[in-house]
Structures are given as structure tokens and as C-alpha cells.
Amino acid sequence: MAFGRRKKTTAEPVGSAGSAEETASAAPGTENGAAGSADSGPEHGPFDAADRPSEEGYVDLGALRIAATQGLALRLEVEEKTKRVVAVTLDLDGSSLQLQAFAAPRSETLWDEIRAQIVKSVSSQGGTADELEGRLGTELLARVPAQAQDGSKGYRVARFVGVDGPRWFLRGVFGGPAAMNPDAAAPLEDVFRNVVVVRGDAPLPPRDLLQLTLPRDASPLPKRNEDSAGDASKPEPPQRGPEITTIG
């Protein structure tokens, strides 16, 4: 599967809603029925590398490790000016999940402040952002006015989630059916819960992007153990397309 092309000239700030417009599909606004809450930690992810140190079963993207999931495809987004990878978008069953990881203060959290920034950004575009308690904790469901493919007026809908970890912050943006439909979102929510964030020990200013890298080779990663080959119950590794071209 080939990587999709995206227009991007600068890295999105951690609180920006701009990526919501790129990731979400134009659709009429609907209510999100998700319920419940979740936190990061040893019992439910996303995980810190200290809690999940092994790379087995994961695609290594530097600051992020993505668990092997059948049917999952990866798209890496490159900033034209710096040539660095600034985000990874995961596609599964017609929905998408964009992930970005940031440095965070040791003794402070970022998600409350970032939600307020997203609400302000969405409002400035004439949209709305509703705060909800969802399956992944406190979320934002954002709707920005847009023209649908048939020319009618509709909305670009995106669902923002965030997790404050030890010295890192992980932001996810669900697009497509997963932004609005809890059943459609469930498979990508499982992917999100299994993400491992590799903060590293280097001192970084709060909100700096953690460095993402291309997988080490072009073959699907990680490889399954030989004893699991042919077992349909074992998830296939995420598919990887050809090397990305510069986005611009």
C-alpha cells in the first residue's frame, strides 16, 4: 500500500486543530456515544517504554512503537522544510488515527491546556468543539464547516484524544467513521491503547515534537515468530508502502 500525500509546510503545534481538517472526512455532524475513561500506565496504555521495553511485536518509529495489527497501514508525514517525520497516520477499515508525541514537563500535564487551545482554534474557523468523557478519557469532538463532495454544506469532523505520560504527551486525532461511530472507532482505539512512547533521556523543551523515524527496512515489521506462521488468529504486521516522497 502506498503512502498518501499530504500538504504540510510546517509542523503542527501541539494544540493546533489544523491537522483535524487534513485527517477527518467531510460529513454531517453526529453525536458521539462513547463512554468511559482511560489513563496511561502499566495496566492500560498508551505505555511508556519503561513499562513495555521489548520491541517484539511492534513497528519501531523512533519515539513511537506501533503494535502489529491485521489490516493496519502506516503513513508517515514529512515536513518539507526540515525533512523530518512529524506525524504518523494509521489507516484501518476506512478510518484514520494521526499520532504525534511531544516532550512534557516532569511535574505538569498538558492535555487540559491543549484542549482549550484546540477549542479556540476550531471556534476561529466557525466550528464547534464539544468536550466529552469517552473511552480514552476526556476528549474533544470537533466540527469545522466544510463543503462535502456533492457540493452540499457539511462538517469536517475530528475526535481529539490526549494522554499525559511521564515527561511526554501523546495526541491522537481520529478521522473518518472512527471520529463519530464508537463501533467503528473500537479497532483504532485498541491500536492507540497499545502505542509505546519512547521519550528518551535528552533534555527537551516542553511541547517539542519527539523524533519519529522511518522503519529500519522496507519489509513489513515486525516479523512474526516462525511458530505463529499460518495461524490466522495471529495479527499480521502493519503494511508498509514505498518510501515517502516529500510532502509539499
Rank of each mutant, 00 (worst) to 15 (best):
G230K: 07
V144E: 04
W168R: 01
G57Y: 06
A2E: 15
G94K: 12
Q100N: 06
S40R: 06
S121Q: 12
A229S: 04
P215M: 05
E12V: 07
E79R: 12
A68R: 14
N225M: 09
L92V: 07
A50Y: 00
F169N: 01
L64I: 08
P220I: 03
L141T: 03
V195D: 05
K7S: 06
V198F: 03
E12C: 06
K8N: 07
I118F: 01
R65I: 00
E77M: 14
P105M: 03
I118T: 11
E133S: 14
T9E: 11
D227I: 10
S123F: 06
A87W: 09
I244M: 06
R106Y: 08
L214M: 14
E189R: 12
V161G: 11
P215R: 08
N225Q: 12
A50D: 05
S121H: 13
I244P: 14
P166W: 00
F174R: 12
G200L: 04
A186C: 03
A20Y: 04
G154F: 11
L90Y: 05
A116S: 14
A67S: 12
F3P: 00
G15R: 06
A11M: 03
V198C: 09
D91C: 01
E113C: 00
S37M: 08
E139D: 09
L72H: 06
R52M: 03
A63N: 02
S121G: 15
R52F: 00
K83E: 10
E226L: 14
